[in-house]
Design a binder for these strands. Structure first.
Lengths: 111, 111
DNA sequence: GCCGTTAATCGTATGATTACGATATAGGAT
DNA sequence: ATCCTATATCGTAATCATACGATTAACGGC
């Protein structure tokens, strides 16, 4: 009955979870790395780099695009992708804040 | 045909993805926060704190335990949980390294 | 116009995830 | 031994995720 009870969680936690979800598959990690380092970020290059079918890569790109951390523009018959650093940084900061909070709350007492 | 092609990805990326997956649900984010801040980390307290059934919470705890970032010990009729900071830190550092690499590779050229 | 290339989307199959209630188990108390 | 409490596990159902091939759509070149 996988009705997500997502509504009952604080907004910040949802953001962290969304970001984490985007990074929860090695293909998407790889995609982001390529996008970060390459000047040309054409879909076909990503497909060539990854051990996955074109349609699967496209699906992963869609997921990242839906979160907003990448953008895609149509360039003739191909698609050029890039990281939206503004959005990426926002999520990264949110994640960093959560991470820091964890360290601050840290207690080595039980177990 | 959801055969994961996981083998074809670098080990570091797999680690980052595993950590991200653990954090990809707000319930697990919440659990970790509670465990970090509470001195008492009894399962029942977590159930009381979360808008989820006892069995569901137990399931989330199991997922975190399988990754190794939390540990559980049996304490009489109840279970006491805590974060294994050694493991948690290791994953966090791995994530941080990935994060830094992203920033270093960053190029604002296309799109 | 017609063809080739590129990439998104569709259809589909399979496995994983998430959720719940019910049951089992184990420990403490009486 | 019996009962109560706490929690893990089982059974189950629904949804999501991941993968692929096939198809569609959009553009450029001829």
């Amino acid at each position: 009955m996988a009705l997500p009870r997502i509504i009952d969680f604080p907004d910040k936690d949802l953001k962290v979870a969304d970001f984490a979800k985007a990074l929860s598959h090695p293909a998407r990690i790889a995609i982001l790395k390529v996008l970060a380092e390459k000047q040309e970020c054409i879909c076909g290059d990503l497909v060539a780099d990854l051990p996955l079918a074109q349609s699967t890569v496209s699906q992963h790109l869609k997921a990242l695009k839906e979160l907003g951390i990448i953008r895609g523009i149509i360039d003739g018959p191909r698609s050029r992708y890039c990281i939206d650093w503004k959005v990426f940084d926002r999520y990264q900061r949110e994640f960093g804040a959560w991470s820091e909070k964890m360290v601050k709350l840290r207690q080595d007492n039980c177990c």
